[in-house]
Amino acid sequence: MTTQSASASTSAPPTTSLQGFDRTTSRWGRGTMLAGLAISLAGPLYLMFGLDYWPGWSPVVQAWVSVAVVFGVFWVAEPITYFPMLGSAASYQAFMIGNIANKLLPSAITAQQAIGAKQGTKKAEIAAVTAIVGAAAVHLVSLLVFVGLLGTWLASLIPDSVAEVFGYIVPAVLGPVLVQAFMAARQHRTRVIALACGAAGVFVLVRFVPSSSVYAMAVCVTAAIALSLALRDRTGTTDDEEATA
C-alpha cells in the first residue's frame, strides 16, 4: 500500500487526504474483520475444547461439508457481487454487520440521495460509509436492548400477528430500494439493461435451471455490469451532465 500512495502523491493535497481515507479504512477494515473472525470462532472452540463438548470428527466434517455444498457459492459470490455496490471500505463493514441488501445498501443509497452525492464519486463512497456507521449504531443498540436485555421478556409479550407482519420486511424494503437505485443510476440505458438482467435471472435462469438460484444473482449482476458498460452512452454526458473528476 505504501508504494501505491507514494506513486500517486504527486497530485494535489486533497488526493492525499482521500488516500488517507482509503489507507485507514482498508487497514482498520481488515484488522477489525480479523478480530471479529477470531472472536466469533473463540466461543465454539471454548465449548469444544475448554468444556470438552467435542462431538467427534465425523459429525463436524459431515456438518461442514453439507453446509459448504449449500453455501459455498455464496461465500465466494457475495463479496464479489456486493463489491461494485459497496466499494472497498464499506465491504469490510458490511460483511461483519450483516443484512447487506435489506439494511445496509438501503441506508447507503438514502444517504447518497439525501446529500445529492453522485454514484462513482468519492463523496458517494464517504456518504455510504457514514450511513453504514449510522445503521450499525441503530442495529447494535437495538440488538443489545431488545434482544440482549429484554429479549426473553419481549418474546412472551409480542403477539404473533406483529411478528407475522414483520416477516414481510424483505419485499417491503426491496420495493422502495429498487426505486432509489433507479433514481441513482446515471444513464437511462443502465436502468433498462440492469432491470432486464434481473428479470431474466428470475424468469429465465432460475425458472429453467432451479439449481442456479444459489449463483443466479451473481450472474445477473455481472451481466448487468458488462452489458451496461459495453452499451453505455459514450457521448460523454450522463443524465445529470455531471463530469466526474
Partner: peptide, 19 residues
C-alpha cells in the same frame, strides 16, 4: 459511474422479483 447503478438495479430487481 456506471458500475454501482447497474449492479444495484440488477441485484435489487433479481431479489425483488424473487420475493
Amino acid at each position: 459511474t456506471i458500475v454501482p447503478g447497474a449492479a444495484m438495479i440488477a441485484g435489487f430487481s433479481y431479489l425483488g422479483l424473487t420475493e
